[in-house]
Design a protein around this nucleic acid. Structure first.
Lengths: 261, 261
DNA sequence: GCCTTGCATTGATCCAGGTCAAGGATTGTC
DNA sequence: GACAATCCTTGACCTGGATCAATGCAAGGC
């Protein structure tokens, strides 16, 4: 591994590093319903809480750097994070936007497999790997839950490969909006004025496009009365059916926890 | 879900359906070392073998169809399988080539999340989901092993997103060759004359390109003396370092089973 | 309130890779 | 071993999205 991920390597935007410890209990956690803690009983949750620290980082903070020692695992409880990889020459691909309930910290040979930067202020539970590994033996439920989460992420990754490999710019934008809408609904928030916490540049780096093409595609969908732009960080879906047709459907609901078997 | 996956839906090539039951024991299984059975003791393997059937299908057989009821899970023991998704208009994206040790059968809401077609003659172990689920409770080791496999697949998917979103045709081909070479080595086979069981069209559908562009890129790398074509289904790497430079490295070895924690 | 600064949009132009169209090379079949 | 049937390669041309270059716009600092 080259030292291509420098101190400040950060897909669009400067790196910050402040972190505000800010512990609170799992009882109030809004992400419980869809993260790895989901299946745990109160006393089991206590075991988990004992080995974790609750933290908050500001927007722009890069709290995972590809290639750095993968000491910790993160469980998002609020906010949006972009996960990305950089090519040696600086080209960036965002592999996902993570939200409450998602976990972060995949490692390959002891080093983080990607970088992660907060797009909004973010809170998460932080675990040290050895301690979490220990708990896995006591509470296999966690492992099962994580397998389900990993499978769902894998399916989302496969959808994204179809998008990146075979969809047009217009189709990518449509798919992206529908996916974000779906995820908001699944988290109990309104699905229609779609919230876009990230910049056009981030969207471009996620969809394999450029800022300009993202902007033009938005404008085109607006002209076609399929969407309406509500400032830079929200989009209203005016014609859902048209948007689904453009996207190639596929963004069907169901992310049910089939787990593996 | 529309009925877009017809009886014969099959990313390049006709659908077949013959299957040859051909049971044999796990003792001789060459895929043991890198699949979900890896960690099991002999008596545990017996429990697993009791609920599985061993099958063989010919090249061209589509044995998983996206959208069909996801009754079974598969564990490849030999051969190469292409996993793909189709857009309503027939555009195809291959999301992965699976080999000995890989598992197949991800489901979303009870239906297969993708189609799978044998590229070469293939053998696999087939499990019925309910039975395998039952065994998970008895042998959590399997679940742990699967979590590791899923994590590795997820990281591979993220690398593929970088490739599809940000790499040029030439870079995609270079990355592809290096990845295949690596996987062969990891399975104890020679890494240098790289074996390409799939067609140019399959490679194109995997790399988000067209047959013509794949062919031209091969020719270009050949002209540059980086590779030599050994017929249609093998490539000799003449200048590994150059190929790695073109690929943007990233295909570092290490796919070590860190699992999650 | 003005000024800075970082987005976002829009326009003009370019080019990597797609599309269309022949040919050549393999592979399997009888 | 001749014939299909694929599969692969190469050439000519075209186009969707990238690149280059202004210009708009809105939010925070002072």
């Amino acid at each position: 591994m080259r030292d291509r991920v420098q101190e400040t390597a950060n897909c669009r935007g400067a790196a910050h590093r402040r972190q505000h410890p800010d512990a609170h209990t799992c009882d109030l956690c809004e992400a419980r319903a869809f993260n790895m803690c989901n299946a745990l009983e109160p006393h089991e949750l206590e075991r988990l809480a004992a080995i974790m620290s609750n933290q908050r980082v500001e927007a722009g903070t890069t709290f995972i750097e590809e290639g750095a020692p993968a000491d910790d695992l993160f469980n998002l409880t609020a906010g949006t994070v972009k996960v990305f990889k950089l090519l040696p020459d600086g080209r960036c691909q965002i592999t996902g936007f993570m939200m409450a309930g998602d976990f972060l910290g995949l490692s390959r040979g002891g080093a983080y497999a990607y970088s992660a930067t907060a797009v909004t202020p973010v809170t998460f539970c932080r675990f040290q790997r050895p301690q979490l590994r220990g708990l896995f033996n006591e509470l296999p439920k966690i492992e099962r839950q994580m397998l389900g989460l990993a499978m769902n992420e894998l399916m989302a990754a496969q959808d994204q490969m179809v998008l990146l490999g075979r969809k047009t710019a217009r189709e990518r934008i449509a798919s992206f909006l529908l996916t974000l809408s779906d995820r908001a609904v699944r988290r109990g928030r309104p699905g229609n004025p779609v919230d876009l916490p990230m910049t056009r540049g981030d969207i471009a780096d996620y969809l394999g496009l450029t800022t300009e093409t993202v902007s033009r595609s938005f404008t085109q969908l607006k002209t076609d009365r399929v969407i309406a732009l509500k400032g830079n960080h929200a989009v209203e879906i005016l014609d859902l059916e048209a948007l689904e047709d453009i996207a190639g459907i596929d963004e069907r609901g169901e992310l049910a926890f089939d787990s593996i078997a």
